[in-house]
């Protein structure tokens, strides 16, 4: 049977991307934040817009707030991300003291576009947090990542999350989603 070289290449690429995203989830859940920061490009941009309840015909115009112009849950670069890591590393950040138990599940991984050295990846995420005793949060939604090839690994360049909640049911977002 002849081998479809193009398909094989694409599968290997997806495998490489998936491995990278799973490793990232491990670093976050193992609280290796400083190492995790190294997976982000220097020009990293992260945005999580607010989601609103709007009429059927108005979803395009109104359903999400716009990164770059309006209030979001997050809309920031690597510098602010680093500050968040610094805060977690003080040991005085009471929102995560005692530390939470967190699992990042990443699934439905697809390559939306391959423009090497960059690829556009879409996936679903489920972030579970449990802390103290019964404080439990589920953050679920869609994610679009832009990754850049660096040697035999990747950097995350851009990440856009759509969190499936309008009123945030978690008391805070003191974890990396």
């Amino acid at each position: 049977m002849p081998i479809d070289e193009a398909l094989l290449e694409r599968m290997l690429l997806r495998e490489s991307v998936s491995e990278f995203l799973y490793r990232e989830a491990d670093l976050l859940d193992e609280r290796r934040y400083t190492e995790w920061l190294d997976m982000l490009a220097e020009d990293y941009q992260y945005s999580v817009p607010l989601r609103m309840n709007v009429a059927f015909g108005e979803t395009d115009a109104r359903e999400e707030t716009r990164a770059g112009r309006e209030i979001c849950w997050f809309d920031e670069g690597k510098e602010t991300m680093s500050l968040r890591v610094d805060q977690l590393n003080t040991g005085l950040h009471w929102a995560e003291e005692p530390v939470s138990r967190i699992s990042h599940l990443v699934t439905n991984i697809r390559l939306d576009a391959v423009e090497l050295p960059e690829v556009a990846v879409s996936c679903r995420f489920l972030v579970y947090r449990n802390r103290v005793a019964d404080e439990t949060d589920f953050l679920v939604g869609r994610r679009k990542d832009r990754l850049r090839q660096v040697g035999d690994s990747w950097h995350v360049v851009r990440r856009e999350l759509l969190l499936d909640q309008s009123v945030l049911l978690a008391k805070n977002l003191s974890i990396f989603v």
């Binding site: 809309d75 602010t80 805060q87 008391k171």
Partner: peptide, 24 residues
């Protein structure tokens, strides 16, 4: 806008810690 988001609200680095105190 950037300052507000890193300061306040549930993702705000200041306000996150307030909620921990009020809740517990």
């Amino acid at each position: 806008r950037h300052y507000y988001m890193r300061y306040a609200g549930p993702a705000g680095m200041t306000e996150q810690d307030d909620m921990e105190n009020w809740d517990y």
